[in-house]
């Protein structure tokens, strides 16, 4: 791993840790943006130019903005004082952390001990954007259509879910 990729990986991990651990939701979202940018940098280092730009465009331009908007629209007034939290037998967060740590440990052990991983260091020839388009339009055309359908359905679903019912006065004026 070259120094640039190492720095990008460190930034990605640091941003990720901050994104799930900070108190302020907006800070979390901005750290998430840092992670997305760094991962795009990693993609660029691996030679996947197109994916890297698509990652920035979709994750930073759309998903991060959506998360920011949602956190502004749902200002949590804090826990409801009327609801007394029931005493729990097990505190949930050490358990979650334990599960995540166990999964990560197992995966790391697998990666470290695997004999099946190919050891290729030759420079890869990335398929050109034109070839990528050809592949998408021929071999993966069904998947492409399904993804298009999924995106349309998701968009309509999100609009239907989030739309406000018009208030009486709005209906009267006709807008």
């Amino acid at each position: 791993m070259e120094p640039a990729a190492f720095i990008a990986a460190l930034l990605a991990l640091g941003g990720a840790v901050a994104a799930v651990s900070l108190r302020n939701l907006i800070h979390c979202a901005l750290c998430l943006v840092l992670t997305f940018f760094s991962v795009a940098g990693l993609f660029l280092g691996l030679g996947a130019e197109f994916v890297s730009f698509a990652q920035v465009m979709v994750y930073v331009g759309a998903i991060a903005i959506l998360i920011v908007f949602a956190s502004l629209m749902t200002r949590d007034p804090g826990a409801d004082p009327a609801r007394v939290p029931e005493p729990r037998a097990i505190q949930p967060w050490p358990l979650g952390l334990g599960i995540a740590g166990a999964v990560t440990g197992v995966l790391l052990a697998c990666v470290g001990s695997s004999r099946l991983l190919p050891d290729v260091t030759a420079p890869a020839v990335a398929p050109s954007v034109r070839e990528l388009g050809q592949e998408l339009m021929t071999r993966y055309v069904v998947a492409l259509e399904v993804v298009g359908l999924l995106l349309t359905a998701a968009m309509i679903g999100a609009v239907v879910l989030a739309v406000r019912e018009p208030r009486p006065l709005d209906r009267e004026v006709g807008r």
């Binding site: 943006v33 197109f50 730009f53 920035v56 903005i65």
Partner: peptide, 22 residues
């Protein structure tokens, strides 16, 4: 001369939205 230059342009442009929000 990037092969996906136009995509790069739009991707970089979407970063300004974050700046405006910040």
């Amino acid at each position: 001369d990037l092969e996906a230059g136009l995509l790069f342009f739009f991707a970089v442009g979407s970063a300004t939205e974050i700046a405006v929000f910040m």
